[in-house]
């Protein structure tokens, strides 16, 4: 599934990021790498998200979230 379809409050693990070179590098520098854990804090519209990534909140646009493939973590 894609991050744009993610549910609020759920934890995800990044599987694959398919974005243009520069955007991908910028995300990677923030810790958004393959296998990075992500928590969705808030969402609106088609998939504009607030996520928690490596201890910090980020707002991500739909153009980013629709291109990040994730797996939902098992509920603990």
């Amino acid at each position: 599934m894609y991050l744009s379809e993610a549910r609020v409050g759920q934890n995800y693990t990044v599987k694959k990021i398919m974005l243009p070179f520069e955007t991908q590098r910028r995300l990677e520098a923030l810790g958004m790498t393959d296998r990075a854990p992500v928590t969705v804090l808030n969402r609106k519209g088609k998939g504009i998200l607030i996520i928690k990534l490596r201890g910090t909140r980020f707002a991500l646009g739909y153009n980013i979230t629709k291109n990040i493939e994730v797996d939902a973590d098992e509920a603990v």
């Binding site: 974005l19 955007t23 910028r26 923030l30 909140r57 980020f58 707002a59 646009g61 153009n63 980013i64």
Partner: peptide
């Protein structure tokens, strides 16, 4: 151009 919103939300 496609836009990529990416901004840190401070506490």
């Amino acid at each position: 151009t496609v836009n990529y919103l990416l901004i840190e939300l401070p506490e």
